[in-house]
Amino acid sequence: MDSVIDKAFAAALYGDGDEGLDAGASMLAAAPGADDELRGRGEEYLRRAWERGWQPADVVRVVRRDLAETHLNLTAALIHAETGRYPHLPPRWATQLADIGPGAERPQDRFSSATVHLQLYRLLLRLPPIEPVGPPPGGAVPGPVEGEPRTLTRIRALLAKAEATGFPEEAEALTAKAQELMARHSVDEALLAARTHAKNVPAACRVGVDAPYETAKAILLDAVASANRCRAVWNEALGFTTVVGFEPDLEAVELLYTSLLVQGTSAMTRAEAEQRAGGRKRTKTFRQSFLMAYAHRIGGRLATAGEHAVTEAAETSRDTALLPVLAARDVAVTDRAEQMFPETTTTRVRGATDGAGWTHGTAAADRAHVPGRGGRAPDADRSLGRGRGR
């Protein structure tokens, strides 16, 4: 059956049109005995993707963006089958696999099923190399960690409540407390590592930045990363930002960004409903301006909050080593980011054109209730680090 698959793949995977796909799908539809080998080839393409720096969530993100639900189901099934081969998986993979789900495939006729396989394999085959943010499966991984730190569990619970409540004052208290715990947790981890001479080094993770309004979302994520002593590099073409930092700070960035994005999107929906109720029709421009203002205001407030937290920690602990320790970690993070992205460029992103959207977005950022003060005018701009695959 290899010859049938080889011929089908030669016809379907290396061209851009539908003619080759149809020819390849017809060959596979007429060869039921090739089904196992066909799925095996899909797992092989996934292994190649892992070797080129991709992780399960990255693959799913691209498939969701470029293909259809049937391809997404097939992708999930193949990922679970392929990763089931390994006795141990790298950090973060278990969470990604749980988020992906089992990927139940819907029954299709043989030609349609073969077409879906070939379309997916064409995409997998063309994935470019990207900067790895961890080892591929099958390599050496750190020993198992029993659960997560209690502080992160508390932060997660506080942010979940902030997202769920319909009362701005309650969300204010919950989010402020979560930010306070994040900053304190980061300082404690840095001091502990210094005192025990732990050989901690900066790590990295990827966070999806999906359309629509991906520029505003990337700015928000950059602000959250900077406030938590991390560096963020946005890959617009592939729809993600790579965040570089020490592990406790990466966890804080993921939690806070996700929560602030949920809160901001909910606030935008409410503001748009109020505008419609007032007889003013709002558009994509309103939403874009809203989220840009939200991201800019949050950036200023997070920066102030981070500086305040460090100052307070230094005064409380009276540990003269704190500021040098944090400075050394900042240098290590910058060095790691520059090693990963030697060709990073900086893009200046210009802001909003809808004044009402900007005003509502700024107010929503204030209600997100991160301690501190700050903000920018609608014509302000911000720099974003951008990287590309190697």
Rank of each mutant, 00 (worst) to 15 (best):
H296E: 13
P142V: 09
P137Y: 03
H88Q: 14
L261K: 08
Q55S: 08
T316S: 10
M340Q: 12
R231H: 05
R126N: 13
A57L: 14
Q339Y: 01
Q108M: 11
L221M: 05
R336I: 02
A227N: 12
R276D: 10
G84Q: 09
A356E: 14
V310I: 12
G385E: 00
L72A: 06
A25Y: 04
E214Q: 13
Q275D: 04
G375N: 05
D354T: 01
G20D: 14
G40W: 01
G375D: 09
R376S: 14
R229S: 10
I219F: 00
T75S: 12
G84F: 04
G239Q: 05
A203K: 07
D16G: 15
V333L: 07
A305W: 09
L152W: 14
G351E: 07
M340A: 10
P102I: 03
A377E: 12
R373Q: 15
E43K: 13
R41K: 07
D354M: 01
E131I: 01
A377R: 12
D109Q: 13
L323E: 15
S317R: 09
D2N: 10
T215W: 11
D109V: 11
G166R: 08
R287T: 00
E338L: 10
G84E: 10
R47P: 02
E338G: 01
A11E: 04
V244L: 07
T353H: 15
D330R: 00
T334V: 05
K199C: 00
A313Y: 15
D66R: 13
S266G: 13
V60F: 02
E274C: 00
D35Y: 09
V133G: 06
V262R: 09
E82T: 05
L291M: 15
A98L: 03
R348T: 15
V209P: 01
E146T: 06
A364D: 08
A29I: 05
V310Y: 04
G245L: 05
G53M: 07
T346V: 13
R195T: 03
A176H: 00
T334M: 06
D35V: 06
R270K: 10
V253N: 00
G17T: 11
A363S: 11
D99C: 03
D249A: 03
W50E: 07
L97A: 05
A273N: 03
V201F: 06
A193F: 13
Q288N: 15
P149D: 03
G372N: 12
A173H: 11
E312R: 14
A356K: 08
T70H: 06
Q263G: 08
G33M: 03
C230E: 04
T269K: 04
R348V: 14
V60T: 00
Q179R: 13
G20E: 11
F9E: 15
A309C: 03
I100V: 07
T362S: 15
A190F: 12
G24F: 00
L67V: 04
E172W: 15
R373V: 09
P107M: 05
E214R: 14
Y213P: 01
L238E: 02
A277M: 06
I100S: 02
G357M: 10
A114H: 10
I100G: 01
G134L: 10
P128F: 10
T345Y: 05
A337Y: 11
A364W: 12
G101H: 08
S3C: 04
L13G: 12
A293F: 03
L74E: 03
H197Q: 12
P87D: 04
